[in-house]
Write a protein that binds this DNA or RNA. Structure first.
Length: 646
RNA sequence: GCUGUUGUAGCUCAGGGGUAGAGCACUUCCUUGGUAAGGAAGAGGUCGUGAGUUCAAUUCUCAUCAACAGCUCCA
């Protein structure tokens, strides 16, 4: 007999060799029908796999992340089976589950598939799913595995097998389809009740842009049709929040091919929003000891030779600006750090001056790959809410913690609650791409890990994601359709102080090298605002709304009064407008609602008589008649509180 | 940069080998209306750009540019 520990701590005894499915059956029939896979000692297993020793067991259903992943992984196999049926001779790359669904990379040879073909494949998948084929696991020797895929003529699978050790190769089969796979899988195809193949795209084999591009088919499946319908609805809703769409509708920003790709033009309302955000952070930074500086938009070539950026990015970036002076070249600044290093150097620094925190909303230009440009989230000209902290090595951790506080303050103020904090460290194996001593890297990596822990941040560690000059802590936020973007960032840099020969005089009267911390709580104004737009679906909190209130006269007769109310609001720093068009009140309200103006002040005969307005809140409706003064107080209280717009 | 899809009025989109249409927005007039679209008239496009096929191209073919999705990249 063996002991199986369940998640609630209960320990039950079973015969050795019991399967997770047996355990599920012993608990309840209903559970046994729902269960997809099982977590055995923290490893996800097939339900049918025998458990021979004492173990902890968690039964995974559709409600578990791992349950869904298993379901989608099995769906990828089902799609592969359908693809082989529809396109005989298709070669298969890899087909994993992803956050929302799955994909399979395939080589179709000379054939091409279109969106309509996806419908055919969906039908085939549904048909195969109904056959209720079991997913069966089989251990295979390397020799047999190679033989199988050689006969099948699938060079991609053969390449994958090459990287595997004999004795740890498994095949999974369902229906007439067999795939090289570690597993695990759901018990049978009949669990898959609803199928949607979402898109076709190209993807390099093994993510290497020098290798062949395969066709990637994305899909998602569900255990019932209702969930699929809900998912489709959710996607449609998400698309309405897209910052590119809202940016156009709310007249926040635009792009012009004539001005240039990836160079945003901020319209008056967008500029208003952006300036509010900038002032908000500036205030917080002044309170925490940052010193504003201003530097030019270009820098001499020598600046970037010193910084090392010329060598690393010179050819792939905006090309130099020439001057009448023969051989003289300037670059548009791709970052603010070198300029700030020169500010540091302008004056001899003592250990007593540190940390020195130089802050600048600095606009930079980077020639991003054409295919990378994306709304405001990836552009070629953007403004960083940049600052560089020059400090002594013993101050790094403390400074780091202060920056974490600032980033969290910013996120909290804008109610970004669903962020992830990612610590990016060096690649575990390949260390050739990093500069600086192992010792300094160790210190910096430790400082970040400790500072994050002491601040109670729950972080994920990503190896190989560090910048070439130092480790970093990034704050990632998802956009409307689930793509992750980096917003706030804190990076430790031992490189630039070295290259610029920055020093300070220590207590010992000797010269020492400061450590530099790059940090940007927003990341960039552009990207932050993009995510903010999607986060609040264009309904900005009152303190940020470009127009905070609009006065809507019932008819021409009240325009004069409406303008007086507008002036009273403006005198109290409320951004107000008047809709004095010759339109009915219903239409004015409708448009103000669609423009997401937080407050509407309806004025007519009744209001004009005793300095009142009928107040209406966007998405909430009429909230009754109030005096102008009451209204101003109400709005200003909300502005002060920086409340999120509910 | 790579693969695929798309490109018609300011916006959202329909159409289709014989030089174009809707709704919204815009302009003018009527209307002075109390909480999500009042009515009428008008203006607006050589159908992304260039070439080819054709008696004829916005429609077919090729190239190119841009947008979108994904990949690669991201100081």
């Amino acid at each position: 007999m063996i002991n199986i520990t369940l998640p609630d701590g209960a320990v039950k005894q079973y015969e050795a060799g019991v399967s997770a499915l047996d355990v599920a059956v012993s608990i309840s029939e209903g559970l046994a029908r729902k269960v997809l896979a099982a977590k055995v000692n923290d490893e996800v297993w097939d339900l049918s796999r025998p458990i021979n020793n004492d173990a902890s067991l968690k039964l995974l259903t559709w409600n578990d992340v791992e349950g869904k992943a298993t379901f989608w992984h099995s769906s990828a196999h089902l799609m592969a089976e359908a693809l082989e049926a529809v396109y005989p001779g298709v070669k298969l790359g890899i087909g994993p589950a992803i956050e929302k669904g799955f994909y399979y990379d395939i080589d179709l040879g000379d054939r091409q598939i279109t969106e309509e073909d996806l419908r055919k494949i969906e039908v085939k998948m549904a048909e195969l799913a109904k056959t209720n084929s079991k997913y069966e696991r089989k251990d295979v020797s390397k020799e047999d595995a190679v033989k199988y895929f050689t006969e099948k003529g699938d060079e991609y699978k053969l390449e994958l097998i090459e990287g595997l050790k004999d004795g740890e190769i498994t095949f999974y089969s369902q229906g007439g389809f067999t795939d090289l796979c570690r597993g695990p899988h759901i018990p049978s195809t009949s669990f898959i009740k609803a199928v949607k193949l979402t898109s076709i795209a190209g993807a390099y084999w093994r993510g290497d842009e020098k290798r062949k591009m395969l066709t990637r088919i994305y899909g998602v499946t569900f255990p019932n049709q209702k969930e699929l319908d809900e998912y489709v609805l959710l996607l449609e809703e998400a698309k309405k929040r897209d910052h590119r769409k809202l940016g156009k509708e709310l007249e926040l920003f635009t792009f012009s091919e004539k001005v240039g790709l990836g160079l945003p033009l901020w319209l008056p309302k967008g500029a208003m929003l952006r300036e509010r955000l900038q002032q908000f952070l500036q205030k917080a930074q002044l309170e925490t000891g940052y010193l504003p500086v201003i530097t030019p938009h270009i820098g001499h070539k020598n600046l970037y030779i010193t910084s090392g950026h010329y060598e690393k990015y010179g050819k792939d970036s905006f090309q130099p600006i020439k001057t009448p002076q023969e051989g003289e070249e300037f670059f548009l600044k791709p970052m603010n750090c070198p300029h700030h290093c020169e500010i540091y150097k302008a004056i001899p620094r003592s250990y007593k001056d540190l940390p020195l925190r130089l802050a600048e909303f600095g606009t930079v230009y980077r020639y991003e790959q054409h295919g990378e440009l994306h709304g405001l989230t990836r552009v070629r000209g953007f403004t960083q809410d940049d600052a560089h902290l020059f400090c002594r090595p013993d101050q790094v951790k403390d400074e780091f913690k202060k920056v974490i506080d600032l980033v969290l303050y910013v996120f909290k103020s804008l109610s970004f609650e669903n962020y992830t904090a990612q610590i990016s460290l060096r690649d575990k194996d390949d260390r050739s791409k990093y500069i600086g001593t192992d010792e300094n890297w160790e210190i910096a990596e430790q400082a970040i890990i400790e500072a994050s822990a002491e601040k109670g941040l729950s972080t994920v560690i990503e190896y190989g994601e560090a910048a070439f000059y130092g480790p970093k802590l990034d704050f990632m936020v998802k956009d409307a359709i689930g793509r992750k973007w980096q917003l706030g960032t804190i990076q430790v840099d031992y490189n630039l102080p070295e290259r610029f020969e920055l020093t300070y005089v220590g207590e010992d009267n000797g010269k020492h090298r400061p450590v530099m911390i790059h940090r940007a709580p927003f990341g960039s104004m552009e990207r932050f605002i993009a995510l903010l737009i999607e986060h609040c679906a264009g309904k900005f909190p009152l303190w940020l709304a470009p127009t905070q209130a609009t006065v809507l006269p019932i008819s021409d007769k009240y325009i004069e009064y409406a303008k007086r109310v507008e002036q009273l609001l403006k005198a109290k720093d409320i951004r107000a407008t008047v809709d004095d068009r010759n339109e009915k009140i219903g239409k004015k309200i409708r448009e103000a609602e669609m423009n997401k103006v937080p407050y509407m002040l309806v004025v007519g005969e009744k209001e004009m008589q005793d300095e009142k307005v009928s107040l209406r809140k966007q998405a909430k409706g009429d909230i009754g008649m109030k005096s102008v003064n009451e209204t101003i107080e109400l709005l200003n209280e909300e502005i002060e509180s920086k409340r999120a717009f509910e």
